[in-house]
Design a protein around this nucleic acid. Structure first.
Lengths: 210, 210, 210, 210
DNA sequence: GATGAATGAGCTTTCATTCAT
DNA sequence: TATGAATGAAAGCTCATTCAT
């Protein structure tokens, strides 16, 4: 049974407002993004903003949640493919998908994410970390030998945080010292080498114990 | 039109304003930091702000420059010590010094740095990247065998950006999954393993070529 | 960003603001006329001023234009009557109408015009000079013999500027040495005598040439 | 006995401040003329302004008085010469002297006088009107036949006010329709014709009475 | 429900004036 | 006496929010 037109229209308006929020934020930054701008871009009256959102901050909150939701939705379906790849290819694939995702719509998300902290995006980061941790866990379980390596939590933490930030910074850098491929290759090599080296050390240890 | 301070009293006022800027920024964030707050914390009249700064943004600019200057001043003298250490110890030492630096004055700098992008800290980041690159280069030259490893620029980029961000995020995280020591150990191990593995591969390659 | 009024209510607000501008300007002068005063007198919030005007100066500009428009609207319909009168009666009539116009609404316009230069009234004076020049030209054409007199442009310039200023100064003077009727009579006689004398000289010249 | 150096210096400082006031006012207009500017141009500290003047307005008052004093000092010595000239030559001479006076020092006085009303110059105009009235009276007494003409007070009022304003407006007009000579000639002719015509009418009247 | 005119608290900034030096 | 750093009241202006239509 379809929803009543009333609800559909309301949902469309909310979507238009959130979309407009992203456009305004990416175009003018958080300080210059006014409710008037958002309403104008959304094609609704300022009053309508307050029909659907408690206040301006609530719009940013929903934007934040939607950004994270979209990111998770981008990553989740990749998991089965990623876990079957060699680690370096998996990392490169994930980074490239992330890059494309951030650069969609003239880099709207990329521009927004740079201002994220100014509008408390951080509050809704959890699902993103969860899905990335899940990818990592599924990967490790698909490659049981890697379960023996040390410092898995720390590596996940560093890989996720360092990786996300390095990519965002690189994409935002008008004149980066290295190419994106070099960055992705570097991250892949770093993780790859860590695993290789750990496995070797485990092996050597096992051999000496025997 | 702001004038350059010529008297001692004037210089003290300028310092008080910049200091107040850090306190206000760390307490309330950039959007809620008003000229009145800064003046109040500095213990001066609002008018005095404009005796020495073109406008509010100019205060943030000077703060940004001072933060970077202080960071560089913290790192630079460590260089001789760091380059003589094993890589993992060097990294752990640097990260711990960075942590202490950020947590000085009740974490004033840490709280400010989270809002960095909102106040164009990026514009003045260069000296920091330069000094960190210099540390890396000096380290590599003190350990000539490491000069053979591949992807040095990418590793420097990843190490600096990923490292800085991972530390900041960890210190800002009210409930981190890992301890700071685990984080530092992880970063050290990751870089350390990368170098070890690279050296081994070089060796193997050299052996096979003979 | 000021918007163009689309609703009736909006138009009424704009009018109230301009009206309040005249009242405030006449009461306190340009330096002491603040946006808050204007808003208060208009019975609207300060914010409303900026819904319809770019800034404070824009209000003064519109006031200036409206003043000139009103003056022109007062003079234009008089033209047919004036051109049929003897010159001295025409001048006296025009001056008296101008006096009444300036003294309307407790002399609001008179008080404003004294501060004219401080708010760039001059920028919009052209239409006033045009209509006065047209009156003069129509008068001369209705009295073809006067077309022979010399120095018509200079006389127009002097008559218009000197006349306007003499009237304004007289009306503003708390203790003038002469009555307004004496002033009007004097201006009428001066212009009248000039024309008479010129015509006589032309006549004498024509006679001597025969 | 010479004044003490102390008093001399004080007088020089006062002069420098008033001079600076004229320069600032002519350069930037009344709204943009700050005490800081005046002090800077005068080469003294802001504090010194308040050693010699109650407040900013007092500076403008003294400026106003000095302007009028200078104008009077320019006109007074001309009187003996003027009264011996034919009326039109006298008027042209006076207007040209006035023009030169206003255009001295890159038009400093001219630029100031346009802002006069914004700073209450008008308050001190009396001596100027007195001296101009005296010139007129002396002229009339030097030409006793003119004492018979009617409307002398009105003509003086119109001539003085209309004349001053017409000259100031003309000199300020970037693109005047007539030349200054034409303006001066026009004013001279207008007054000249008035007198001529009046004398003729008196004569005719006298003849008819006989 | 949708609108946008209206609001006013509160922002940044200026500048005449003061007063310790 | 002369200074200029310091002041703070008050200016122009913005914009999230409200509410009559």
């Amino acid at each position: 049974m379809p929803r009543t037109p009333r609800q559909d229209r309301a949902r469309a308006t909310v979507d238009a407002i959130v979309e407009a929020g992203f456009i305004a934020l990416s175009q003018r930054g958080p300080a210059a993004t006014t409710t008037r701008h958002i309403a104008e871009i959304a094609g609704v009256g300022v009053g309508s903003l307050y029909e659907y959102f408690e206040n301006k901050e609530a719009i940013f909150n929903v934007m934040s949640q939607r950004f994270i939701k979209d990111t998770v939705a981008m990553i989740k379906p990749l998991t089965p493919t990623l876990v079957r790849m060699p680690i370096d290819a998996a990392i490169r694939t994930l980074l490239n998908e992330f890059k494309d995702f951030l650069e969609m719509n003239d880099g709207r998300y990329l521009k927004c994410v740079r201002h994220a902290m100014a509008v408390d995006f951080e509050l809704h980061l959890d699902p993103l970390f969860q899905v990335l941790n899940e990818v990592i866990m599924r990967y490790l379980m698909s490659h049981p030998e890697t379960l023996q390596i040390r410092r898995i939590p720390a590596m996940a933490y560093i890989g996720i945080n360092g990786g996300i930030f390095a990519v965002i910074r690189h994409l935002s850098d008008p004149d980066p010292m290295i190419s994106f491929d070099e960055l992705a290759d570097g991250l892949a090599a770093m993780i790859g080498h860590y695993i290789t080296q750990e496995l070797k050390e485990r092996e050597a240890l096992a051999a000496s114990e025997t």
